[in-house]
């Protein structure tokens, strides 16, 4: 089995699916010739030609808006937004059209497309290169939001996304693009959308995370040693998220902590905790809790350490919830 990083798994999955489905087109700023600033689409133009992998003019609204038209007319667009911080000029297209076309046309046009973009902090980058904006999109009916945390899931989820009948936003945790490798099957496989993964079984507390923070929680679990038996869930799909797995887990552990980089107020944690309150209230032994980014603009690198959620802080928070 080939050994892949998240990044190489994405490239190879695009390659595999483009070979199989000649309606797939990848494009965006610097996507074609050089294969994107992170090289996620490297080699695809050379292999599939300039019509199926190309550099777009610098305009996010055009990138997503044209994807709408392509999807209507028989292509399967896979636009890349260079960094999540730069999706905002396309917010109108995504929210006003991508999310609504199926509804608006009563299903005549469903806009199957995958909008890829790197997201998240911790890479000591310039302004607008560190945010986690998943809740902005997960809030909108009609958008699926997917975030892998391993090379295996990157391939499996991306394959599912590319074969999904509806538009999928695929957020790639760039901090761990190349952080570690994993053996993954060479042939096609799918990880279903909307299905969380129990990364580690446990009995004392349910901790939910996604993207780069899954590994941080794993580190926190190591720090805690044998004292606390954590059940770790990787949410993987933010919308529609896997309520059943969360609720089942909390019914067993009685405690719930969600950890995310996104800002706190009206963030993803608020949604998950509401669900826990609604569906597992009588099982709770401590208030369901969130550990999240603060409600401040992500600081530039020399102050970013205050914002980044460390394994130590996660461990501390887990102890607090367990010892409530």
């Amino acid at each position: 089995m080939p050994v892949e990083t998240i990044l190489s798994a994405i490239t190879n999955t695009l390659d595999e699916q483009m070979a199989k489905d000649d309606t797939i087109v990848v494009f965006g700023e610097d996507v074609g010739f050089e294969g994107g600033v992170f090289r996620a689409t490297k080699g695809l133009q050379q292999k599939y030609g300039k019509e199926r992998s190309f550099d777009s003019p610098l305009a996010e609204s055009a990138i997503i808006g044209s994807a709408v038209g392509m999807a209507v007319n028989g292509l399967k667009p896979v636009p890349e937004i260079q960094f999540q911080g730069f999706v905002l000029p396309a917010f109108n297209q995504i929210v006003a059209h991508v999310a609504r076309y199926r509804t608006r046309t009563k299903g005549t046009y469903s806009l199957p497309m995958v909008i890829r973009m790197p997201y998240g902090g911790g890479i000591r980058a310039l302004e607008h290169h560190s945010e986690s904006l998943e809740s902005l999109f997960a809030h909108i009916p009609g958008l699926k939001v997917v975030i892998p945390s391993t090379p295996y899931d990157a391939k499996g989820l991306l394959t599912s996304a590319l074969q999904d009948p509806d538009p999928v936003l695929f957020f790639e945790p760039k901090r761990i693009y190349r952080a570690f490798k994993q053996e993954i099957p060479d042939k096609e496989f799918k990880v279903p959308l909307g299905k969380a993964k129990v990364v580690k079984k446990g009995t004392d507390i349910t901790v939910v995370a996604w993207g780069a923070l899954v590994r941080e929680v794993e580190k926190a679990i190591k720090l805690l040693g044998d004292d606390i038996n954590v059940e770790l869930i990787d949410l993987r799909t933010i919308q529609p998220y896997d309520k059943d797995t969360l609720v089942e887990s909390v019914k067993k552990t009685g405690r719930f902590l969600v950890v995310h980089e996104a800002y706190k107020s009206f963030g993803p944690g608020a949604e998950l905790i509401s669900t826990i309150n609604e569906k597992a209230f009588l099982y709770l032994e401590a208030p369901p809790t969130r550990l999240s980014g603060f409600d401040i603009t992500v600081p530039l690198p020399k102050g970013e350490h205050h914002f980044i959620i460390t394994p130590e802080r996660i461990a501390h928070e887990i102890k607090k919830v367990v010892n409530f």
Partner: peptide
């Protein structure tokens, strides 16, 4: 060197909201 903690919280609003102050 590095930026002080208070500094990164200082400029979201003229007056820090209660919730952010709590954070």
């Amino acid at each position: 060197g590095l930026i002080e903690l208070d500094e990164v919280f200082k400029y979201t609003f003229e007056t820090m909201t209660k919730d952010v102050a709590e954070q």
